[in-house]
Computed example of a mutant assay.
Amino acid sequence: MVSEYLPLLAQGAGLSLCVMLLALVLAVVLGLINAVIKLFGPPWLRWLSIGYTTLVRGIPELVIMLLLFFGGEMLVNGLLSVFGIGPVRFNTFISGVLAIGFVFGAYYTETFRGAFQTVEHGQLEAAVAYGMRPGQVFRRVMLPQMLSFAIPGINNNWLGLMKASALVSILGLEDMVWLAEQAGRATQKPFLFYFLVAVIYMVITALSGWLFNRLARRYALYSSTAREVSS
């Protein structure tokens, strides 16, 4: 019976990885946008960004996920009932991705904001003197330089996001944690399946560490080259 559940567990692992990667993309996009707003946006947008990061980082991921999923579903159905529209059910996959991306977007905001502030102003002034427009300065100088400082924080937040992705099983998504629980109950071997899930997470962690180390070396070389050119 154990062997019958292994292909299902592999499918669940693929689903969990999709949740992680899509949530990562959303979190990075939110983090970049909010970091730019915090540094260069108008005051009212800065206050909204500060409120977002402060509120989200002060509440556990599970609580936010339950609030967005169940609370959001109740709110939407309450509004739809006014127009006589029947109840709707939120998609657990999309809800999990949005909730995790929303939460870790706040963490990536602070990571990117600190990395932007670390970029040397001399390089920005040299780019402006060279004739670059503000958009070009941001895209060609500031963004690559920022990434060389942000990669360790990106890696740390990714590890937190990866572990938080296991919470989507509470919403009913049939990821590898949910399937491991079901398989453990059916075979009376819960430790075995949870151990396999732990091994899968460790493999993802090891591969992620290798990838981020390569990225760190690459952007460190880019950063040092940029400094030599600007000097």
Rank of each mutant, 00 (worst) to 15 (best):
R214H: 09
I200G: 02
L173P: 03
L62S: 03
G122I: 01
G101L: 04
L30W: 02
R227C: 07
A115S: 09
Q145M: 04
S208Y: 07
L9K: 11
G84K: 08
P43Y: 09
R214N: 10
L143S: 10
S148H: 12
R214A: 13
G86R: 15
Y5K: 05
R140D: 06
I170A: 12
G31R: 13
Y194G: 00
L68C: 08
T54G: 08
R57V: 06
T225K: 13
P190F: 13
K163R: 01
F70G: 02
A35V: 01
E120N: 11
F112G: 00
S165L: 01
T53V: 14
P134F: 14
Y130E: 11
S223P: 04
W44N: 06
G101V: 03
T118M: 15
G122Y: 12
V82P: 00
A106K: 02
I100Y: 00
T92P: 01
F138R: 12
G78K: 04
M176I: 00
L24D: 04
F93W: 12
F193E: 06
F212S: 07
V103N: 15
V25M: 11
V19Y: 07
S224I: 01
P134R: 00
F191T: 11
V229C: 10
I50V: 12
P7D: 06
R217H: 08
S49T: 05
I151C: 04
G153F: 10
L192N: 03
A127Q: 13
L196S: 07
A226L: 12
R217G: 10
G12E: 08
M146H: 08
R217K: 15
V168D: 03
H121E: 13
G184L: 08
L171W: 00
R214I: 14
M202F: 15
L8I: 09
W47M: 04
A220I: 01
G172Y: 13
V97Q: 08
Y107P: 07
W210Y: 10
A127T: 01
L124M: 07
V197Y: 07
V2R: 03
I85A: 04
W158R: 13
L171R: 00
A13K: 05
P144G: 12
G184M: 15
S230C: 14
T54H: 06
F90I: 07
W47N: 05
N77D: 10
R133V: 00
I100A: 14
G105M: 03
G160M: 14
L171C: 08
R57W: 11
L173S: 10
W47T: 14
G31K: 07
G114Y: 05
S208G: 04
G105R: 01
G172A: 10
L159R: 12
L15K: 01
E73R: 15
L143A: 10
S231V: 06
L179P: 00
G84M: 04
W44D: 02
E73S: 15
L124K: 03
V199L: 15
Y108G: 00
G114S: 14
Y222K: 08
R218S: 13
A166L: 00
P87I: 02
A206I: 12
V88A: 08
L45I: 09
L215C: 11
V137P: 07
K38A: 11
V36K: 15
A129P: 04
K189L: 14
Y108C: 03
R217P: 08
V82E: 12
K163A: 11
L6P: 03
L221M: 13
F138V: 10
